[in-house]
Structure formats: structure tokens, C-alpha cells
Design a protein around this nucleic acid. Structure first.
Length: 716
DNA sequence: AATCCGTCTATTTTT
DNA sequence: TAGACGGATT
């Protein structure tokens, strides 16, 4: 019909123009998933199948939601403001604000992020005099969140042991505290709105009738509760259009349930399953490697990526003597790519765990290569910002004891632990909030507490009719936060960030005004909790990109280095123990490989310093799972570490190995082959000559101590 | 109230 | 090895 549908391949076209039925789109990496999703929305609107208000689109990240809206706006001349496109949490927040009474929440309820939640749990545990040794706050917080993600309230928890039994009690007390204070954690946003829809039939039917089309992105990442939430909204007459890729499910540890894809197919008798398998990102060899690797997983819905492009280059494999050599080689290789004309921003270094980045950063830094590490602290997570926000929270909601405690003595104003205890006792006695209990505290403590309350009260009066940015400015001034950080030695950055908060408020107000909203204090606080802000500066710089494989999902680069492909690291040793853990690691490797467009490097080190200890790992099994024909070894395939070191001398990062010869032919770090256990690497040794015993890491087969006199060991 | 010191821990992370 | 945290000290 129109230009909307131009240049879609047959499968994409079929997905975009599906009739009004439930559908599951299996969208492989680089298959144009976002394009299909946004074009479908545009098509539904353009053809009159849906009005902009009649559809709901859910994503996981704010970035994805924003991207979707931008693309829709580019395709259609409609006002995208007010459309229900957002994250699960964002949409739940919206729902709960609109129906706060039915949801039994104050209109200005505040949202706790994970930090705030942990602090709240700590307070509960303290009040209940729980043994923090046996019930670590972190674990309790995790327990509560996990229960909520399963849709469980305290009474639904099966007490199988002491921890779950007490855990349910803590959960109940925690919920009670949150309710009293008018705050809601992330998981609660979802659970509360799920319960609201489940319980309130007219409301549920209202939204079912309104949202004719529900579209879900990254469906493989949904948890059980999110799926149940979707089921509340997907009724008889509307349709669920789910897009996902089971092969890219890498968030099981935080509750994602790939099983939702199969469940969806069954629960809704989905007839339309469309596979998007044409890949527009990677060259042939890279895709072939990815396909071969992921084929080792069982329990797949099944999919094979292909490309119209040629094979491209082989995948380059590098074996390094140590993590230091790996980094040094990588620097050289990146420099040589740069000399050939590739921008650093088009190269990415991926690793399984953050601990690996240090050595790499060091090597890049000392060679003067600009780099950018993804992840890390977000703007709204910074302490100084959290402090400032706590003042705003208390302004919006005096019942918020968490916010009160955070700032009552920050900056210090002579209110010590004793005074706070007195106040807490008074609040308990009067069953009221800390804020309300202040007048009932006598003496000197009462006087300083009253002074604190006066700060808040006068702030409230002065800022009553001021625009948000000015409220923030007044708060910084009155609270003496800025003054406090100015007097601190390393406070300059913090002062700057606080100034930035005023700008953030201004930007927020402007954006809200464009959407016809007020942009009041409560919405700003919700915004701060739900979008922790951009990761960091340096976006525009031509810098080499560094990140974990997890954070690389959804991105693409011309050249990709996947480092640390070693047993124990990737696949990670902790995951191999878990049920389905190895398959998830393989999916992770699949995600990593499919980030590359034209050039892919896989590297591993024989020796690696981890937690202050030298570790000897054998190459990752994932390397064995990629066909030899696709790979080009930059180092001798089965070379010993000795020939390795002589073959390639690193300009930086001196080797760390120096062992004395124990009188037999073997050395620590050396690769060996055992008749029964296969390939391994010598980790440590004791004794001399034929008396010696060697400890060998056989990776999959585990760690073994072998007596040299009996074991048949061959140097590799 | 700030600083020091010992202890613990160390996959992956968004909202 | 290094960083974070909590308790004790000054």
C-alpha cells in the first residue's frame, strides 16, 4: 500500500500486516526486530486498525521505549505523546497513578529504587531484631523481590525452611512499612497493578476494550508476573503481538522466564509464528559460527540465521600466555584496525565479567587509546543526588520515613543516633511517621529535630508556587547541601552534579510541558526513580567501546573482540552448576558473536590473575563448538605457552610467570593431554622427579591431582 | 563526626 | 588484588 511497507522482506511484511490475531515473532539477532515492531504500530494506525490511544507497547528499557516512539514519529504525522508506549514499570506507574484509590495508594506515592529498598529492608530487620548474620539484608531484599516477581504475597510463600519462614514475616512487615510510608518498590509496581486488574473487573474490561493491540518487545526477558500482567490485559477481543528470541534469553538470573514463549503459544493457541531469520548485520562466517554454537543447545524453538552477504573474513582466534598479553595484543590489533581506517567507536571489547576490564583498561590507557566503559553509576544513583531527592520526597510526602532518615542529619546538624532513636520510639508510641513525631520529642534532641522540620516547612512554603527547577535550587540552598560539598576536599564533582540536577529538572519540565503535562514534583521523582539517567558522558567521542556481554545486547559494531574465552570464565564456573546455566552461557556467547558486523576476534589466556590469585584455565568449550573452517588461528593452534611467548613478544605488560624447575618435564601453566580426562592445564605441582604429583584443571572434567608415576600425561 | 582498621567477598543488571 | 562495609577508635 504505502511507503511504510517498502523494503520489508516477506517475513517482516507478514509480521507487520498480520490480521488481528495473537502472534509470536521469533526475531533473530539483527533481523530488523525493532523495525518490524514500529512499522507494525504505524501500519495499524495508518490502516485504521487502531487509534494511537488504542494500543499498548511494552519494552524493558527506557532507551528501547524512546527509540520506538522516535521511529513511530518519523513514520507517521501523529502526536506520540500520550501513547501507551513504555517500560513495564513505567506503564504500571501510570496505571497506579490513574487509579491510586482503587490500588490503595496515596496519590503521591513514591518509588523506591533498589538502594532505597535495601535501606527499607534494613530498617525492618532492625525493628524486628533479626539476626543479620542469619538474615543478611541483601538476601532478604532479594527474597522479597523474587517473591513479588513470582506474584506471591507473604501468605503465598511456602515455608520450606527457616529462611523462607522468617522471610515471609519480614516480607509482611516490609510491605506494611511501605504501605504506611506511601512508597512502592519496583516489583511492587508490577504486582500492585497486576492485582488491581485481577481484582477489579470493570477496570480490567475497560483496558481490555481500550487496548485493541498489545505489543511486547524482548518477550523472552519477561518474568512470570509480567506475563500474568499481560494476560490480564489481553482479553477476548484484543490481540497480543509478542516479539522475542529464545536464543538471546540471558536474564534468567533476574527472573526472566523463556518458558513464557512456549506458554504464550499454548495459552493463546497462537497460530501465527513468524520467524525472522534474515540477518542484516553480520557477514556469513560470523553467522555460521553463531548458528553452529547455538545448535549445541537443546530446548530451542528453532531458528537459523542467514545473510544475503558473502562469507566475509574468517573469525580470528588468539591464544595469549596471560591476561596481560591478551590485553597487549588487543591494543596492537585495535591500533592496526585504526590505521586501516576503522574508527575506534566502531570497535568493541566484550567480556563476561566486569573484573576483566581492569587489565584491558590499563593496556588501553597506557597506549593512549581513548575508551569508554559502559555501565557504572547513573546520574540519579549518585549519593549527592539521592540526598537532594530525599529532600524533595519529604516535601512531597512527609510520611516517607526512609527519606527522613536519609537527610535528618545530612548535612550534619547535631542530630545523632540517640536523638533518632528517641524519635523512632515516639513515632512507634504514637503510631505515626517520624516527621509527625518530632513535636513529641523533648529536650535538646527535640529542639534540633524541630529545627530540621522548620527547614522543610519553610522550604515548602517558599516553593509552593515556584516552578520545579527553582524548587530544586531553593532546596540546594536551604538544605546547605551545596555548601557542605563545597567545603569538602573532593566535593567539586558533587557540587557540579547538584547543579546538574537543576538542569535535569528544567529539562524535565520542558519535556512534560510539550506533552501537555504539568511536570510537578511527584512526577519528577517518579521519573528519577524509573529512569536512573544516562550512563555517563563521552557519548560523542571516538572511543573504543568496552562492556560486558550482557550490556552489549541490542548493539552492533564493525569489529568485536570477545575476550577471556576460558573454561570457568566463559562459561562462568558458577553458572555451570546451575540448572540450564550452561545453555544460558552459550546463549550469552551467541549474543556476543552476533554483535559483530565484519570482523570478530575470540581470545583466551592461559594464565589469568583473578582475586589476587593466578588461575590456569583451558580454552572455552565454545571454541570447540565453532567449526574449524570458520576460524583462523593467529597463534599456533595447540602451541605450548613457551612457543607462545617466543612467538609473540608483547610491547607492554611483562609476563608474571616465573617458576623453578621441579626436575620433571612439566611446568605450571602447561597444557597436557590425559588418556581419560582429555585436555587440561597444570595448575600446581608438588614433589620432584617421578615422585611428583600434579594438579590439573581439566575444565569440564574438573580439577584432579595426578601422580606423575602412574598417570599417562602427554605434553600438548 | 571523622577516620581507621579488619573482614569479607568477588557473574551477569533494568526498573 | 581491591573495594565495600561495619565497628571501633580518636
Amino acid at each position: 500500500m504505502s511507503s511504510l511497507l517498502d523494503n520489508l522482506n516477506p517475513e517482516q511484511l507478514a509480521a507487520v500486516t498480520l490480521p488481528n490475531q495473537h502472534a509470536l515473532i521469533l526475531a533473530g539477532a539483527g533481523s530488523g526486530k525493532t523495525r518490524v515492531l514500529t512499522t507494525r504500530i504505524a501500519w495499524l494506525i495508518q490502516t485504521g486498525n487502531a487509534s494511537p490511544n488504542g494500543l499498548l507497547a511494552v519494552t524493558f528499557t527506557n532507551k528501547a521505549a524512546k527509540e520506538m516512539l522516535t521511529r513511530i514519529a518519523a513514520m507517521l504525522p501523529i502526536n506520540i505523546r500520550g501513547m501507551w508506549v513504555g517500560t513495564f514499570h513505567g506503564l504500571c506507574n501510570r496505571l497506579l497513578r490513574a487509579h491510586h484509590r482503587d490500588a490503595n495508594l496515596p496519590q503521591l506515592f513514591q518509588i523506591l529504587d533498589s538502594q532505597d529498598q535495601l535501606a527499607a529492608v534494613k530498617r525492618v530487620l532492625k525493628a524486628m531484631r533479626a539476626d543479620e548474620e542469619r538474615f543478611p539484608p541483601r538476601q532478604v531484599a532479594y527474597f522479597i523481590s523474587a517473591a513479588k516477581d513470582e506474584g506471591k504475597r507473604p501468605r503465598d510463600i511456602e515455608a520450606i525452611d527457616e529462611f523462607t519462614r522468617r522471610g515471609a514475616d519480614f516480607y509482611a512487615a516490609y510491605d506494611e512499612q511501605c504501605q504506611k510510608e506511601g512508597v512502592v518498590d519496583f516489583a511492587e509496581l508490577l504486582l500492585r497493578s497486576y492485582e488491581l486488574l485481577a481484582r477489579n473487573e470493570p477496570l480490567r474490561e475497560h483496558y481490555q476494550a481500550r487496548f485493541k493491540h498489545i505489543l511486547v518487545d524482548e518477550f523472552q526477558d519477561t518474568n512470570r508476573l509480567q506475563y500474568r500482567w499481560l494476560r490480564q490485559l489481553a482479553g477476548r477481543d484484543n490481540t497480543l503481538f509478542a516479539v522475542g528470541d529464545d536464543d538471546q534469553s540471558i536474564y534468567r538470573f533476574r527472573g526472566a522466564n523463556v518458558g513464557n514463549m512456549a506458554d504464550f503459544e499454548r495459552d493463546y493457541r497462537v497460530q501465527n509464528i513468524i520467524r525472522l531469520e534474515q540477518n542484516y548485520r553480520s557477514q556469513g562466517n560470523i553467522l555460521a559460527a553463531a548458528n553452529a554454537l547455538i545448535a549445541h543447545n537443546s530446548r530451542r524453538l528453532g531458528k537459523n540465521l542467514w545473510t544475503a552477504e558473502g562469507e566475509g573474513e574468517p573469525i580470528r582466534i588468539f591464544q595469549a600466555a596471560s591476561d596481560g598479553y591478551e590485553a597487549a595484543w588487543l591494543v596492537e590489533e585495535a591500533q592496526s584496525l585504526a590505521r586501516e581506517g576503522m574508527a575506534y567507536r566502531d570497535m568493541a571489547i566484550l567480556y563476561r565479567s566486569n573484573a576483566q576490564s581492569r587489565v584491558l583498561e590499563h593496556a588501553l590507557f597506557s597506549n593512549g587509546i581513548a575508551y569508554r566503559v559502559y555501565g557504572g553509576q547513573r546520574f540519579f544513583d549518585r549519593v549527592e543526588i539521592k540526598h537532594a531527592l530525599a529532600y524533595l520526597r519529604l516535601l512531597a510526602n512527609p510520611e516517607d520515613d526512609g527519606a527522613f532518615l536519609r537527610i535528618v542529619n545530612f548535612p550534619t546538624r547535631g542530630i545523632g543516633a540517640r536523638s533518632v532513636e528517641q524519635l523512632q520510639d515516639a513515632a512507634l508510641a504514637g503510631s505515626c511517621s517520624l516527621y509527625q513525631a518530632v513535636p513529641s520529642v523533648p529536650g535538646k534532641a527535640g529542639a534540633s529535630l524541630a529545627a530540621f522540620v522548620r527547614i522543610i516547612e519553610s522550604l515548602r512554603e517558599e516553593t509552593n508556587s515556584l516552578p520545579l527547577p527553582e524548587v530544586v535550587g531553593a532546596l540546594l540552598e536551604k538544605s546547605a547541601l551545596v555548601a557542605h560539598y563545597q567545603s569538602e576536599r573532593d566535593g567539586a564533582d558533587r557540587v557540579e552534579n547538584l547543579g546538574e540536577l537543576v538542569n535535569a529538572a528544567a529539562a524535565f519540565v520542558q519535556e512534560e510541558a510539550a506533552g501537555g503535562n504539568g511536570g510537578d514534583l511527584a512526577t519528577f521523582l517518579a521519573h528519577a526513580a524509573l529512569e536512573s539517567g544516562e550512563n555517563q558522558a563521552g557519548e560523542g567521542m571516538d572511543a573504543l567501546q568496552m562492556m560486558t556481554v550482557h550490556s552489549a545486547k541490542g548493539l552492533e559494531f564493525h569489529a568485536v573482540f570477545i575476550t577471556g574465552l576460558e573454561e570457568g570464565l566463559f562459561p562462568h564456573e558458577q553458572s555451570v552448576m546451575e540448572d540450564d546455566g550452561l545453555e544460558e552461557e552459550r546463549r550469552l556467547a551467541y549474543v556476543a558473536i552476533t554483535r559483530a558486523r565484519t570482523r570478530l576476534y575470540l581470545s583466551f589466556a592461559q594464565t589469568r590473575l583473578l582475586h589476587g590469585q593466578t588461575r590456569y584455565n583451558i580454552p572455552s568449550r565454545f571454541l570447540d563448538e565453532i567449526p574449524d573452517g570458520l576460524m583462523k588461528w593467529l597463534t599456533p593452534r595447540l602451541g605450548s605457552s613457551l612457543s607462545q611467548e617466543t612467538a609473540w613478544q608483547a610491547p607492554v605488560a611483562a609476563p608474571r610467570v616465573s617458576q623453578k624447575d621441579p626436575g620433571h618435564g612439566f611446568r605450571i601453566g602447561q597444557n597436557v593431554v590425559h588418556a581419560k580426562f582429555g585436555q587440561g592445564v597444570i595448575v600446581s605441582a608438588e614433589g620432584f622427579g617421578s615422585e611428583a604429583r600434579l594438579q590439573i584443571n581439566f575444565g569440564r572434567q574438573g580439577m584432579k591431582w595426578l601422580a606423575l608415576a602412574y598417570a599417562k600425561l602427554e605434553p600438548l
